[in-house]
Amino acid sequence: MEHILRFELSGLLPGCERVAPNSARRGKAAVQHGRTWNRDMGQEFGHAEAASDEELLSEVSHSGDASAFALLFARYSRRIYRIGLKLTGNEQLSRDLVQETMLTVWQKAHLFDLDRGSADNWIFTMTRNRCFDLLRKAKRQPVCVSADDIWPPGEEAESVSETENPIERHALLSRIGGMLTRLPAEQQAVIKQVYELDFTHEEAARRLGIPLGTLKSRLRLGLDKLKYFVGPDK
């Protein structure tokens, strides 16, 4: 049950970060293949801010669309930087990580395959792989085996629970999506903290600013309700 929730939730709550437009830099232009790029080009070229990461990635892949790339950059660069800082503790390496990862996105978007997972996952794998390669380079280790060969991108393996009972799980998953939204907001919030973001009960309570007891009772209520929606165990 717990695994089911966690994975269903990650589908429901795409982790994409919107960066507030920075007016000071608005209008800064770059030339690419005779075209001019600026921050607002996304809209000019018909990319709603609402375009999904997957759509943008496939635009980059099929037509080398600079505005789609710029939107992806806006959504991901800060997250990559932050992960880099956590993994390396070094600001310059973190900048390099953004550069290398977004370059991979630009050059190898065609390796991303829609059928095999989310853009979020793919870019995350690329971030970890580029970080591994960067650290190897920093330690002057040979780089004859690429991190992408060791941790191939784009292949989202099934979870342990999925391999145990794929068919039943799949059927259940497609039903749970709708069920979650029928829970009260505060119950959805605790389920998300615990099952999607994988925090311990203590961490989740602290993050939500509620007492541990409250968290546990909301969690129990929410899960009971979901179990009720799902029906009795077979």
Partner: peptide
Amino acid sequence: MREWHPEAATVDVHVPDLEGMIEGII
């Protein structure tokens, strides 16, 4: 991946301006 989710960031780190890179990459 939980560290990767924007909402999961526990400390707010200063992120420098990175947009200057876009031009070079494309």
